[in-house]
């Protein structure tokens, strides 16, 4: 199972940097990220890191509102239309997601799409039934 690190963040100067600083001090590498701002003055920062549990503990120790969230990671080709091909399959599998972000694994060859869904188990089942390959944590976070 793969996880992202979700952080509650006020939209204020320095708050994001405080998070990245804690990660830097703990030797944690960020592979990918998504920052969702709301109109209410706060947002949620989703980070894909090389060591989610370590990141979670480091941040929680510093009093950050942080959670580990299970994600679904899907492989796609790093070519024109690669994302479109994948999304066509995902929509045919009838899976909706709230938030998504990607990262390249091998230039011009492989990339992954991380999706954040309401019901992980249900979505996994649907994707499996549709024959869509889901990646394990090793592939998601990358090799150390």
């Amino acid at each position: 199972m793969a996880y992202e690190v979700s952080i509650f963040l006020e939209n204020k100067i320095g708050h994001f940097e405080r998070i990245t600083h804690i990660l830097k001090e703990n030797n944690i590498n960020i592979r990918s990220m998504a920052l969702n701002n709301t109109s209410n003055g706060w947002g949620i920062l989703d980070l894909l890191v090389n060591s989610p549990e370590k990141a979670y503990n480091a941040l929680a120790d510093k009093g950050v509102s942080v959670a580990l969230r299970e994600i679904i990671a899907l492989e796609m080709k790093d070519v024109t239309g690669g994302l479109d091909d994948l999304l066509l399959k995902v929509s045919k599998a009838n899976v909706n997601f709230d938030n998504a972000y990607g990262r390249i694994i091998q230039e011009n060859k492989a990339a992954i799409l991380v999706i954040d869904v309401q019901d992980v188990e249900d979505s996994k089942k649907k994707l499996q039934e549709a024959g869509i390959q889901m990646l394990d944590d090793k592939n998601v976070y990358g090799i150390e």
Binding site: F8, T38, I44, D46, A60, G63, L68, D98, Q118
Partner: peptide, 18 residues
């Protein structure tokens, strides 16, 4: 202040709480 132990990274829940 949102309690840390309640935060699960879910934007919908936070919206609903607001």
């Amino acid at each position: 202040e949102v309690k840390k132990e309640w935060f699960k990274g879910d934007i919908h829940k936070l919206d609903l709480l607001t």
